[in-house]
Amino acid sequence: MEENAQYLYITDRGFKALVKGLLKERRVYGTVRKDGFPAFKEISGAEEIELVQTPTHLSAKEFLFPQREVLLKFDIKDNTHEAVVEAGDQAIIGLHPCDIRAIGLMDRVFSCGAQDVNYLARRGRTILIGSDCMPDRYCFCKSLGDTDVDSGFDIFLHRLKTGFIARTGTEVGADLIRKFAGPRMPSPRELTELEGLRTRREGSFTATLEAPPEALPGIYAMSDESPVWERIGSICYGCGSCNNVCPTCYCFDVRDEVRANLNDGERVRTWDGCTLDDFARVSGGHDFRKTRAARLKHRFNRKFRYLSGRFDSLFCVGCGRCSRACLVRINIAEVTNELIRESYKK
């Protein structure tokens, strides 16, 4: 382990002191159990956090790209308007490697072309703290490349039986650890424990893709006529849950809302989803993706093909949230494997 120098050991008390220190200066969101299931939630004390190892049902994107945000306030009578950027200092604790990679992709989306000031202002004031995970039966990040991250976070915590190994990814993160957590160099025994955890995790994946990640855009490009789309389209609700739980689905709608005085109003951005019935309906009632099959095909292609051309990266991080949330059990890894098998026959 040549990179030992980047690794620090902090105690459980050091972790709590870190959270407490963050709470003094910013809003803190952490992983908790909600109705027994892993979820992100705003916390007010370190004891509330439980570093849950399986993925949260919803991703952490709402803290950077809220479900609903005001972009503009306007006054019709005075013909005036004022841009609104709602951003404050915040920290997100308990992000898994897939979540951190997803935020990296969102950063690229929202800074590509016209800069999205609302997202970027919020992102610039956000500290990201990662923590270890264990795959459940829907996780397949291993098939998409890395199961771990080397960057994209300020601090990454590996839970040991006692205390944590902390990796720092930015100067900000290193400063926070020094200031609050009382770090020391890890002992060889602690580093061995970390290696053991990593090995156990690597061996715990059950969902896998049957082709390497670099082959996926090509396989999807061959799949336009596949019978898979009609089959999954026939059972899909078009409920948008896959979009809403996805850490890299970033589509939104913008509307002007006017108050009952017919004068003051707000321009509001809300999440939208490409699997919803009205997503591709435009003026005059024309709808260029009328069926659920067409909409699902679009979503899958966005994850594995369309965006890879623009950003040189797949847009699925393998977190499995869409499969987990789907009541009719459309499973993104299984669908992709079907397309892979079809492509071998061609």
Binding site: K34, D35, G36, F37, A39, K41, H57, L58, E62, Q67, R68, Y237, G238, C239, G240, S241, N244, V245, T270, W271, G273, L276, D277, D278, A325, L327
Partner: peptide, 17 residues
């Protein structure tokens, strides 16, 4: 014209199922 699942996810609810 979208199902309640959207509002549920927006509210951060755990699915009732």
């Amino acid at each position: 014209n979208y199902p309640v699942c959207v509002d549920c996810k927006m509210a951060g609810n755990i699915c009732v199922f």
